[in-house]
């Protein structure tokens, strides 16, 4: 409505009222109302702070992204936003990087009281990365030897390949050929060991026979013998230290280890 039309309507209303009054006989005027009690000159009540705006945009982010908090407050003496921002100006905006879903609370304090408002930023986990590419086909040399090649055992004071050692070494031969093919740069140490009973000196010679006998047997089965390196440990490195035949048998062996 324009202000011209507004003023015309007011004039018309006044005119109509005056006209109506002129038509009626004037009655005695009523007594005036008692005077209104003199209003106390109280100050106007202080206003409560008004939070005109408190928003988070966007309200949902992925972890690592940011959101913007915007706020506008009037009639406040102190404005805080928790968590993270603390005391702030009455109006403003800030960028936040919440790592988890966070509800921000704006608290406005003023002489007329407090006012609060909240705004939430919903944080969603980013989608997982793609699984790592499958490892290249490099198997562990030491592990291959440990899992696929068994010790060959010997009789006391003997370096002959017994029947059970013959079976073991025949199985070993296939594994050793495959392993040496897969690891063309590697050599394999064939360790000769003895039990604790013979003399240390004689056992060094006996252990040498055991390692060499095992190597020669494997060579006959087609294992590349130049990549099998015998070394005698005599009774220097027992794998079992008890004094009984079970333990001694464990020590009378040819063992296959990664080469030097």
């Amino acid at each position: 409505m324009s202000s011209k039309r507004k003023s015309a309507a007011v004039l018309m209303s006044i005119f109509l009222v005056l006209f109506a009054a002129g038509c009626k006989k004037k009655p005695a005027p009523p007594p005036p109302p008692p005077p209104a009690p003199k209003p106390v000159e109280a100050p106007p009540p202080p206003k409560r702070p008004t939070i005109n705006q408190f928003s988070a945009e966007p309200s949902s982010i992925e972890r690592g992204q940011s959101a913007t908090l915007r706020w506008s407050v009037s009639d406040a003496t102190e404005v805080r936003i928790d968590p993270a921002l603390g005391v702030v100006q009455s109006n403003g905006n800030r960028t936040v990087f919440p790592s988890n879903t966070t509800q921000y609370t704006l608290t406005a304090r003023g002489p007329g009281g407090d006012a609060t408002a909240t705004a939430s930023v919903n944080v969603t986990a980013p989608p997982p990365p793609p699984p790592p590419p499958p490892p290249p086909v490099t198997r562990d040399f030491t592990r291959e030897l440990e899992t696929r090649v068994q010790d060959a055992y010997f009789d006391y004071d003997k370096s002959d390949i017994r029947d059970d050692a013959r079976s073991t070494l025949s199985r070993n031969a296939d594994s050793l050929k495959a392993i040496l093919r897969d690891f063309p740069q590697k050599t394999i140490t064939v360790e000769g060991h003895c039990d604790e009973r013979g003399s240390a000196e004689y056992n060094l010679g006996l252990g040498d026979r055991r390692s060499t006998a095992a190597k020669e047997f494997l060579g006959q089965l087609g294992v590349p013998a130049d990549r099998l390196k015998p070394v005698s440990y005599g009774k220097e490195r027992p794998q079992c230290t008890e004094t009984n035949e079970t333990c001694w048998q464990k020590n009378r062996r040819a063992h296959f280890a990664p080469g030097q």
Partner: peptide
């Protein structure tokens, strides 16, 4: 594969030892 167990002659001019050079030590 193994050379070990040395021993001197009394005059110190020679050394004896055990070796698997030809197979058995």
């Amino acid at each position: 594969t193994i050379t070990y167990s040395p021993g001197f002659t009394p005059d110190g001019q020679k050394l004896l030892y055990s070796s698997s050079l030809s197979g058995y030590a």
